[in-house]
Design a protein around this nucleic acid. Structure first.
Lengths: 215, 215
DNA sequence: CGTCCCCTTGAGCAGAATCAAGCCTAGTGG
DNA sequence: CCACTAGGCTTGATTCTGCTCAAGGGGACG
């Protein structure tokens, strides 16, 4: 795999790793930091499709489709490595690798399906609970949770865009879960004050935890 | 590809092709008829994740993840063929095929992302318009459109579940687009009375058309 | 010091859900 | 052959979740 590595780069919070109309396909792996994949509408709305954590592969779908359609933005300062996507064909010669890529995409699809189900069928509190549970499980697997707290670099605006809500309404939802002693969102981090009730609120037992780092 | 074909089968409208907790992974291709992939919540809600048309591959994600998590139901009588998913490994030896599978999953992911964006960010009329446009394009590519009409075997309930609405509200939305002379939904088929305005209503220029039949 | 952005909160509105009732069709069993 | 039932469609009345608009406060940064 190292043979396909082109560069090891770094950018800063707010920069775009992939633009919605970027020229060529680009394949990256996040080493450190957070990013989000999102899609914007002409009318101004934006939907955040997934949160990307260290170890995640970025841009796989664009390579196999040609043409980028959503954008990836760094939430924090990040380091990542770039693969040579033109040589990806050679990569498919290694069967275990081909299988690995397929299962990564399959898992991604799974997570999108779950998100779609939640957003389509649930109200704000359950939506929020599911999102946080999924994220918690992924962070836990990466040892990025300290006790019941973890860093959470999304702004309220961004979290709202991920949940398909407005900031105003998200804010009220956050207040109620805080008042219920379930969840505390404050100063760039989240404290889970009652994991059990949080999980009870989330309609699905997440599959997010199964998501393994790529490299 | 034919070497991996196990059986050519048929079932009837309402039957399950894949159950949400089905034992083994199963890989199918739809020959004729319509199906839907959906996921249900314990609380009773259901989200329809995609509509499957002749030529579509079914269950690819389950093979590469082990364990089925959503169910596929026949909407009409269908015929389909079954592949031997245990031998899928051999299949990956053919590099063009591996790439083909990857691009199928990538396109699927694309469509899910779009649906998520729409459901998260749009109101009922635009949601409906986008759904119908996407479907129209896919049907058009398969020569399943007659003039401005096409067969549409989804019940109102099912369409509502696909859009993340209730039947009551969907019904009202359908009435308004009918009164505006845009779309007519009646007796198991849909007539597009003003494609231009329908497309103008849909926020995204669909990528659905790119979805090619697998076999 | 001013500006910009984000968070916070209130008031009012509207899109969508719920509840409820009536209609029609198809299927079922007597 | 008909009565009964169940499920889907249609519609109205009502409720409520979530959105819009609006305004004020608090950093961060030039």
């Amino acid at each position: 795999m190292h043979a396909f590595k082109i560069a090891h780069e770094r950018t800063w919070a707010g920069d775009l790793l992939l633009a919605q109309d970027h020229p060529g396909p680009r394949l990256l792996t996040l080493y450190s930091g957070w990013a989000i994949r999102s899609r914007s509408l002409a009318s101004g709305e934006r939907q955040i499709l997934s949160v990307l954590l260290p170890g995640d592969l970025i841009g796989l779908e664009t390579v196999f489709r040609g043409g980028q359609s959503d954008s990836v933005e760094a939430l924090t300062d990040v380091t990542f490595c770039v693969f040579d996507s033109r040589r990806l064909d050679e990569l498919l010669n290694v069967k275990t690798l081909a299988r690995r890529l397929l299962s990564l995409l399959a898992l991604d699809q799974q997570q999108l399906s779950e998100r779609l189900t939640i957003i389509g069928a649930c109200d704000a509190p359950r939506n929020l609970a599911q999102f946080i549970c999924d994220l918690y499980d992924r962070l836990y697997g990466r040892r990025m949770v300290q006790g019941s707290r973890f860093k959470f670099p999304l702004s309220m605006r961004q979290l709202a865009d991920a949940l398909g809500l407005t900031t105003v309404h998200l804010h009220r939802t956050l207040r109620t879960v805080r008042e219920q002693g379930i969840l505390l969102f404050e100063g760039g981090s989240i404290e889970i004050r009652d994991l059990e009730r949080l999980r009870a609120l989330a309609p699905l037992t997440s599959s997010a935890a199964r998501k393994q780092p790529f490299v």
